[in-house]
């Protein structure tokens, strides 16, 4: 294998497999949003601080602006678009976010939901403190987090 400025990658996103040629320099978030047109994941910073781009990557929560798309060759990725179990139904976290008014502008919400999902997947009975820690990588500028924490708490067992 020799270094290349672009390569063809195969990525499974929300169960669907995509094959695309991508520049090595392209960040995974831009690949997801611009190349795959999955615009649910967002960009809120340029330094990896905000978590708006959070996705679950091979079972682990990551910020997709902190990975190159080419690194995702062969990876399984879950984004907010894949969260609802089926059309017309919401995931328990999605419903709880709505019930608790855990979103206002909704810009942080996709990333926040993925963080919450990763947290509860690993720790279904997360305590409030664990929830705060689990959401620490996601900035929300609208809600002050209190309602988000409540929303996740309501789903935690």
């Amino acid at each position: 294998m020799e270094p290349q400025t672009s390569q063809t990658i195969t990525v499974t996103v929300n169960g669907e497999t995509y094959e695309r040629e991508v520049e090595a320099r392209r960040l995974l978030i831009h690949f997801i949003r611009d190349d795959l047109d999955l615009t649910g994941s967002h960009v809120g910073c340029d330094t990896g601080n905000c978590g708006a781009c959070s996705v679950i990557y091979n079972g682990q929560l990551v910020k997709s602006c902190m990975l190159l798309a080419v690194q995702a060759d062969g990876a399984r990725i879950e984004t907010v678009e894949g969260l609802a179990p089926e059309d017309g139904k919401l995931h328990a976290l999605q419903q709880s976010f709505s019930d608790h008014h855990a979103l206002q502008c909704g810009y942080c919400t996709p990333g926040m939901l993925m963080s919450a999902k990763a947290l509860l997947d690993a720790n279904p009975s997360a305590s409030e403190e664990e929830i705060r820690k689990g959401l620490q990588g996601n900035i929300c500028r609208c809600t002050g987090y209190w309602n988000i924490i409540d929303a996740v708490k309501a789903v935690a067992r």
Binding site: L38, T39, G40, S41, T79, V80, E81, L83, A84, L90, Q94, Q95, F97, S98, L103, G106, Y107, T109, P110, L113
Partner: peptide, 10 residues
Amino acid sequence: EDKRLVQGQG
């Protein structure tokens, strides 16, 4: 607003 926003459909 929530239904679309929680699904990344905004």
